[in-house]
Write a protein that binds this DNA or RNA. Structure first.
Length: 261
DNA sequence: ATGGCAATGTTTCATTGA
């Protein structure tokens, strides 16, 4: 199956991009972040027309996550959980659903604003609680996909010197990323040899995309045991080239079937 | 040191993002 994650920065504005993208790249599961929509405005019907079932947890203005599942290939989403049971939170950043034999956890990590700020402290606590939750046993292999708002390594930063110690790159954030991975995951993207300077987010300002001045902050973590089944992982820059794009690009992983064919 | 760009609702600016 193909599983992707994409921070769309407003699904209202980006719906045409998402629909076009799914027509060109009919992934089986798509995790969305920053839908910025109340649940009553979620474009369920338009996605259903393309064959996708949606589960979602939104709020006005900020945050909002969704998991789209292509019905004919992965069936219906089950065991939907909104938020982290261990971390009561008004902000809609986390959504889990069982689909296609996987427990898909769609996450929009807090941004953190700046190192040492209240939002940064919240970010670290939020991640710690996520790790605590993910440490609990699951009946299905867990895939954690989303906008982590962490560039795990200097390879994931266009200008590591400029970003050193800054939010998204600070050591406490990177330690937390490593702690999540240490629960038994692998970063699907790094299972493969990748060209240098692969990023998933570029600032809207200062022609950052054209200069490839970006960060790799969107990730798909798969269980170590599933690593042999991951056949590819890449970032699709094409949607970022369109008019009025999201500042993030989708990340796609191809995960093979359980049984060798 | 600051703004720069985009989206939203508190809407003609302030807030947030990353």
């Amino acid at each position: 199956m193909k599983l992707a994650t994409w921070n769309v920065n407003s699904l209202k504005v980006r719906l045409p991009h998402v629909l076009d993208w799914l027509r060109a790249e009919p992934v089986d599961v798509l995790c969305l972040q920053e839908t910025k929509l109340r649940d009553e405005y979620f474009p369920q019907a338009a996605l259903a027309e393309l064959g996708y079932e949606s589960v979602f947890a939104g709020q006005p203005t900020y945050n909002g996550v969704a998991i789209l599942a292509r019905r004919e290939t992965v069936g219906a989403a089950a065991s939907v959980v909104v938020g982290n049971p261990l971390f009561p939170d008004e902000q809609k950043r986390l959504l889990s659903a069982d689909v296609g034999g996987l427990r898909v956890v769609c996450a929009y990590f807090p941004n953190g604003q700046s190192v040492g700020s209240d939002k940064y402290v919240y970010k670290l606590h939020w991640i710690d609680a996520l790790a605590e939750w993910l440490a609990q046993p699951s009946p299905l292999p867990v895939v954690l996909a989303g906008d982590f708002n962490i560039a795990p390594d200097d390879r994931d930063v266009h200008d590591p010197q400029a970003w050193a110690g800054q939010v998204l790159c600070s050591e406490p954030e990177r330690e937390r990323f490593a702690k999540l991975v240490a629960l038994g995951f692998v970063d699907a993207f790094r299972l493969f040899e990748q060209p240098p300077k692969c990023f998933s987010w570029w600032d809207y300002r200062q022609l950052a995309f054209r200069r490839n001045a970006g960060l790799r902050i969107d990730h798909i973590l798969v269980p170590q045991a599933l690593a042999p089944r991951v056949h590819a992982c890449r970032i699709d820059r094409e949607p970022r080239k369109r008019e009025q794009p999201s500042d993030h690009a989708p990340v796609i992983a191809e995960i093979g079937p359980d049984e060798p064919r």
